[in-house]
Write a protein that binds this DNA or RNA. Structure first.
Lengths: 134, 134
DNA sequence: GTGCAGTTACTCGGATACCTCCTGTCCGAGTCGTCAAGG
DNA sequence: CCTTGACGACTCGGACAGGAGGTATCCGAGTAACTGCAC
């Protein structure tokens, strides 16, 4: 089990968009160059973020992607859920949620991780230090 | 991202082995029947647990798998690590561990989940209730 | 100078291959218990 | 009756297909800015 690379790209891109001040649309080309990813692939990932309501897209010349909501509210979990989906990490023997004790333990553990990701806002990390793309 | 089915099978099998008292080897056929899995596939999973030192295998007639260490010490994390590997869930841009703040946050979140899985011992759950295989 | 239509260049987004890893299966090597024969 | 050897059945474990999902790419549809021309 591993987080997909798409999640990594999404987090770094969002971190970049949140860290810089101007709210003008950023082209995919620019965002992709910073991470050495194919622009078309990154576009595919950003589409998920658009559908999740985190960013919005602008077509045409000088278009690109731009933050949609308040930048202070965006947490790590929002982005991860947008890319990876909101399904539980652990699927037991056919939705026997209440019965299976193992499932309960796994759910608690997952809950712990999600709490941390929900409480950590992107902007807090962005304010600490933003050097390049890292 | 999801936990593999193998992890699910491994957890249930270990739970069963820990819950029952006798320490005589259990055949794969018996263990597989309880979960509706192919015995050969389950054998493949149990091999990982053997290599991790959690259980040991006995060949020949009346052979099978048997717990190796103290049953009180086995935690959820031990089993998950044995099946899924010990690698980090999140791999950032090429092992730039110290630099990337995103990686740091993800690592903390993962740490939170692992702590819960490490502190929860299998036997504690087994003692609560053990009804069938659930 | 102003308005407008055409052009152009750039963007997004879905549809399409490729590849890795998980899932599941098959068969051979090895081991232990059983049984029978011989002493 | 005891020892011993072979046999057989059962087991584990690695090697072999099939499929799902992630990764990466290409191309078309659409849009906004720019340009040039007519008024």
């Amino acid at each position: 089990m591993k987080y997909s690379k798409a999640t990594n790209y999404a987090l770094h891109t969002m971190m970049y968009m949140i860290a810089i001040e101007p709210n003008s649309p950023l082209g995919v080309q620019q965002l992709a160059d910073k991470q050495g990813v194919s622009p078309t692939y990154l576009s595919k990932i950003l589409t998920k973020l658009v559908k999740a309501g985190l960013i919005e897209s602008a077509s045409g010349a000088h278009g690109g992607y731009r933050l949609k909501g308040k930048r202070e509210d965006i947490s790590f979990l929002d982005i991860i859920h947008a890319v990876e989906g909101t399904a539980s990490l652990f699927e037991c023997c056919g939705s026997e949620d209440s019965k299976c004790l193992i499932h309960g333990v796994m759910l608690e553990a997952e809950e712990g991780m999600e709490q941390h990701l929900k409480n950590t806002k992107m902007i807090d990390v962005a304010r600490k230090r933003f050097s390049g793309i890292s």
